[in-house]
């Protein structure tokens, strides 16, 4: 029974992975018939590269912005949908729609709204005296990208929270009520702890997502200003397909995989420890 999946994994995961590891030690440029083994040169170069360092730091910066926003936003949406007396399905689908929207299309819309001469900016300048360079500021540009991504994924993560909310037994709430936990207390001491499995899933998904950001910064900022939105995927794309450094690009991709793996492992451990302390083994 396992063999079809085994064969599939061999062909589409293991062989490409081994091939990528091999390429990471070469200077292949994708089109040359010949290439050489360069040992650890690519890794050393990546270690000292300004753009790789930027990609590493920018990912955590995005994480700091995106993860709290998307968790708070999707939980809020889930609570609203959960409290609806009817049409829950319709609203769930409605909030899920941005997830299906093309990243390129939404980035182009955001670009238009934030452009210097958009009605929005013209209004800010004229009536509030605010002249803001939204995508030219190293602080605002990543925040805008994080907000865009949060908008896109909020509906999806809200569904995960919603299923968590729906699975909390009524008896738990009744028992809590008898102990005097109502309103805010009920939410804080009953609902939130009972949602731990959903929090766990959403946090791990959101953290993992941060290592694969490409479309939004590619369309909106190109990784600028001053590398403030330069992600791993942009770096890999630039190296492999713009500069034809496929060997080096693969090295960066391998480093990205390792960093992603370690980061998710750390987050998992922290979340599991926190869960265990609150009765979730």
């Amino acid at each position: 029974m396992a063999s079809p999946y085994l064969i599939y994994s061999l062909i589409f995961f293991l062989f490409p992975l081994l091939w990528a590891v091999y390429l990471a030690f070469t200077n292949w440029n994708l089109i040359a018939p010949d290439y050489e083994m360069v040992g650890l040169r690519n890794f050393i170069e990546a270690f000292f590269s300004e753009s790789v360092r930027a990609a590493f730091l920018v990912t955590y910066k995005f994480m700091l912005m995106f993860v709290p926003i998307v968790i708070a936003g999707s939980l809020f949406l889930a609570l609203i949908i959960h409290s609806l007396p009817r049409l829950k399905g319709l609203f769930s689908v409605g909030y899920f729609l941005p997830y299906l929207a093309s990243g390129v299309a939404s980035a182009i819309v955001v670009k238009g709204v934030l452009s210097y001469n958009s009605p929005f900016n013209a209004f800010l300048r004229r009536y509030l005296g605010l002249d803001i360079d939204w995508l030219g500021s190293p602080i605002l540009a990543p925040l805008i990208i994080a907000l865009m991504m949060a908008w896109k994924f909020m509906g999806y993560y809200a569904l995960l929270f919603l299923s968590g909310l729906e699975s909390i037994p009524k008896e738990v709430y009744e028992a809590a009520e008898m102990d005097g936990a109502v309103g805010w207390k009920r939410f804080w001491y009953v609902t939130l702890p009972m949602l731990y499995p959903s929090f766990y899933t959403v946090t791990i998904l959101a953290v993992g997502l941060m290592f694969g950001i490409f479309t939004e910064p590619y369309v909106l900022t190109g990784g600028g200003p001053d590398y403030s939105t330069h992600t791993w995927q942009l770096e890999i794309y630039n190296q492999a397909f713009q500069k034809l450094n496929a060997g080096y690009g693969t090295t960066v991709a391998i480093i990205n995989s390792v960093v992603t793996f370690v980061s998710i492992l750390v987050f998992r451990k922290v979340l599991e420890k926190w869960g265990a302390r609150h009765g979730w083994e």
């Binding site: 210097y116 001469n117 958009s118 360079d133």
Partner: peptide, 14 residues
Amino acid sequence: LLTRKATDPFENAT
């Protein structure tokens, strides 16, 4: 120089 992203700045005479 306007070094900010602008939509059709020449067409709008910005």
